[in-house]
Design a binder for these strands. Structure first.
Length: 295
DNA sequence: ATGACTAAATACTTTAGA
């Protein structure tokens, strides 16, 4: 079974590339983030394309911003929209979480797959940052309460360690790298979840996000903030785990690349081409800075 | 010192992303 998570940065803008990627990689379960559209708009725009390819789907959409989706060719049961107990932001329930059980049947309990878009946090002294931490606490509580096999996937907006950014010095004082944020990832790992990409690439620079500006992708100045965290029995089935940098290349990409996990069973037939290892031989230049917002 | 790119709505400028 192949599982993928991808922040597509607008399904409307990524429609063609998303379908080409699905046809090339043939994932069985797909988590999408930043749909930037409502449930109805998603179903109208891309629902028929997904059904034609054998996917069931469920969405936690929202007008214009955020939005998470879960696609599955291997069953989609017990869908939960949102995280119980998660905070709202200024009275709005944002489309940041959806989960469902995939691959169940024949005595197999399946896997609860979460498709998550953690709040960005903006600045450390902002209420968006406090909201991010509260949201993460609700996620940890929910994962703890659920004892079935789990995959926690998505744009977590946290670089788990200093190895997950191009230069820790460039991120001093910024969100995504602060101890309270990293504590949330550590709390999930303390519950038995494992970061399958880092386990597979323990000493490589593997990034999943590169700012659109200033040639950051070409210089490999990125961050690893899109994660797949697997509970023990699922992580033990890892056949391959990687970041699909090919999907970040060319004209009109998302600023994120998909994260991929192959478990030790897969459907019969062609599941797509082999892909090269992530960032093979690439090392970030030293002393680079983050792009700065215009004032 | 500054800008840098993309997307959506607030729409020809602002807000947001990370």
């Amino acid at each position: 079974m192949r599982v993928a998570t991808w922040n597509v940065n607008s399904v409307k803008q990524r429609h063609g590339r998303l379908l080409e990627w699905l046809d090339s990689r043939r994932p069985d379960v797909v988590c999408l983030q930043e749909l930037k559209m409502t449930d109805d708009a998603f179903a109208t725009l891309i629902g028929p394309d997904l059904e034609e390819r054998g996917y069931e789907f469920a969405t936690a959409g929202q007008p214009a911003w955020n939005g998470s989706a879960l696609l599955s060719k291997v069953g989609l049961q017990d869908v939960v929209v949102g995280i119980p107990g998660a905070p709202e932001y200024e009275g709005i329930v944002e489309g940041r979480a959806i989960s469902g059980v995939c691959g169940a049947g024949d005595g197999d309990p399946g896997i609860r797959v979460h498709s998550l878009y953690t709040p960005n946090g903006r600045e450390i002294d902002s209420d968006h940052y406090a909201y991010k931490l509260e949201w993460l606490a609700a996620l940890v509580a929910q994962v703890k309460a659920d004892t079935v096999p789990q995959l926690v996937c998505g744009d977590m907006n946290i670089a788990p360690t200093d190895e997950d950014v191009f230069d820790p010095a460039a991120f001093a004082g910024h969100t995504h790298v602060t101890p309270p944020e990293r504590d949330a990832i550590a709390a999930l790992e303390a519950l038995g979840l494992r970061d399958v990409v880092r386990e597979r690439w323990p000493h490589e620079q593997v990034f999943s996000y590169w700012d659109y500006r200033a040639g950051m992708f070409n210089k490999n100045l990125g961050m690893r903030i899109d994660l797949i965290l697997a509970s023990g029995t699922v992580a033990d089935r890892t056949a391959a785990a990687w970041i699909d940098r090919q999907a970040r290349k060319g004209k009109g990409p998302s600023d994120h690349a998909p994260v991929m996990l192959d478990l030790d069973t897969a459907p019969d037939g062609d599941i797509g081409p082999m892909v090269p290892p992530p960032s093979a031989g690439r090392v970030s230049p030293k002393g680079a800075k983050l792009p700065q917002a215009k004032n």
